[in-house]
Write a protein that binds this DNA or RNA. Sequence first.
DNA 1: AATGAATGAGGGTTCATTCAT
DNA 2: CATGAATGAACCCTCATTCAT
Lengths: 206, 206, 206, 206
Amino acid sequence: MKQSPRVLGRPRHDGNAKPTKDLVLETATRLFIKEGYKNISMDDVAKACNVTKATIYYYYPTKGELYTSALIAMMDRIKLSILEILEQPIPFKERLEQLVAVHLSATIDIDMKNFMKEATINLSEPQLKQVQASENDMYQTIEQTMQVEMDNGTIRKGNAKFFAHNFMALMTVGYFKDGDGKTLLGSVDVTAKEVTNFFWLSVENK
Amino acid sequence: MKQSPRVLGRPRHDGNAKPTKDLVLETATRLFIKEGYKNISMDDVAKACNVTKATIYYYYPTKGELYTSALIAMMDRIKLSILEILEQPIPFKERLEQLVAVHLSATIDIDMKNFMKEATINLSEPQLKQVQASENDMYQTIEQTMQVEMDNGTIRKGNAKFFAHNFMALMTVGYFKDGDGKTLLGSVDVTAKEVTNFFWLSVENK
Amino acid sequence: MKQSPRVLGRPRHDGNAKPTKDLVLETATRLFIKEGYKNISMDDVAKACNVTKATIYYYYPTKGELYTSALIAMMDRIKLSILEILEQPIPFKERLEQLVAVHLSATIDIDMKNFMKEATINLSEPQLKQVQASENDMYQTIEQTMQVEMDNGTIRKGNAKFFAHNFMALMTVGYFKDGDGKTLLGSVDVTAKEVTNFFWLSVENK
Amino acid sequence: MKQSPRVLGRPRHDGNAKPTKDLVLETATRLFIKEGYKNISMDDVAKACNVTKATIYYYYPTKGELYTSALIAMMDRIKLSILEILEQPIPFKERLEQLVAVHLSATIDIDMKNFMKEATINLSEPQLKQVQASENDMYQTIEQTMQVEMDNGTIRKGNAKFFAHNFMALMTVGYFKDGDGKTLLGSVDVTAKEVTNFFWLSVENK
DNA sequence: AATGAATGAGGGTTCATTCAT
DNA sequence: CATGAATGAACCCTCATTCAT
């Protein structure tokens, strides 16, 4: 309850400390990703940030708003990391492989479907729209690259958005763990190779 | 609001009515699938069954137990429906196509990953183990058929479990709806064909 | 929940089995003594008797009635055991010592005050009256013997009821256990001797 | 029924009002002493304090914790009041008499045995340990004085802790009320004298 | 004589949110 | 900018009691 009583008033700004608003967003994002919307309370976020609940509300007017911001921030970061990888001047297949490897390494299991489901249930219409736009952006990043490679002739012609979703879906298989905590294919590198290969067999231009 | 006030005590038994325990399980399964564990309260289940919360507890000692039973029942039903389809004496690819079509038609979006995540967070160790066993059973049903078709030479040699998971993952793409509620590929039939085809290109024995 | 489904209808009466009504009363008494009124539910009693709750209600119309009967039965038994001991043709002090020893040996800590408090709070007026009458009966048994011994000149003249209560109060000290579960004076026999002696010093006719 | 609807948020601070946390503890102590753990709900405490249940939980994380705090606070107060009386420079017997008188005047029937029983049944291990420590402290206060008076030769040599418990036990007899609400010996003063005298006859150094 | 099924009224606890300071 | 104190609604679960069979 009553932990380390903080002093009243504005705390002196610790030069290299993150602004509170960012700290809250990052912490919330991490927690929401791990446990989902309903399993994380505003108190949980506050405790993890070592601030009070009221502080959270100072920056984010409702839990829904915080979740919305968290999802958008997350998707934005993912989009950027995808872009960075896809822009490299190496063969497409290798880039895809890297994409899988990087995401599987990030320990946290990014489950888009789940986030969107929780958003649909718990957010307001406008909030949901924002999140959907972000999700769309993210997928488009891959989609556009798919399109480019189709035009290149690297992969066969097809529905680029469908390809993008399929790729992401196959990637989630890499996250799977059975009752004993074992993944399907072992190491991240092997998994990345196998997943990419499976995808590649479907899309390559023979 | 106050709907059909029920009397205390044992109700006169309506011969052709479903046993309450089954009604509860079916209703709970439906609700949990749609909204998830935390978003559905025991009261929600009770109201949907038109009984009181106490009745639910008469049959299922805790919410976790109800969720466990619901998941297991669901996975069991899915497993049976999969089996039924896969046992037909028609070409493997056609059977897969049917599998996709049937599941996409079931309106409810079966999201295994999400169920397992909620189970991990909210269930007790023994409950979780039960659910995991059920999930495993379900995947094995597909896996075994994959294995048979590999041995047949219908599809290329590979990790059957990996193939099974990939197939299910690709199937979920069919569920995807964008902000306007549109699926990626239109009608269920077209989607089923495209999804199966995408999978097939990866696994066929060329 | 669903344990060993019993057959419907009246069970054949197992010759040497206790009538259910008695079984219920004895079980309830034991449970109420150990854990108190509020900590024991009708379900607890039913389970401990291996019958259903409805059976309990068949014999005892309310929980209060069951508690009332249980307390009265207990006090009656105690009264009889007291009588038996006090009627022996041995010196009074030795009889008192036996009284303490016998009750301390009964493992269960008979806490009259507590029973009466719970009765006051939870029982109806008429039920409470019954219990109080029983308690009074019990004390009177000791009181009367005290009176006889006063008239005999074995103990000093005084308020016999007060003496009786004091004796019972001192007896409860023998039950005391500290945080490590140790009694104040060690073995039951030593305790019985010391307690009686303490009482005796106050009442003996010098 | 609906009394003074309170507003949300932090209330304007009424300078001379008791801090809520203290109010809660005092109220809870009073209620628990009168009716016991299970007979008092968190709602009862809240209503008696004219705050909501959530406020109680703001200060005390569980009912068990509140009970623990209440018992400890009570025993502490009793210990202090005992100390104050026993430290006076008047004959020991008179101090004991005052002790009885003061406690019998306090209307509330302090029943240690009962509190400890409820604690044993309802509290967690660590909570129980705390309460037991407090109880021990309280008894030690009397015990130490007994020891001093033994060394003084005022009372006979014996087990000081046993004496202390006997004294407290005899004190409880003063609380006894029969079915008609009458005490055994009439006025508080007479009772105090008689009880002390009974004890004294056992312990005086002749 | 005994059961199985159901209820309504709480009881403990959590949580998003509010607001004076 | 941030806090501490408080609320009301909801949530999971328990329990005494009822009644058709």
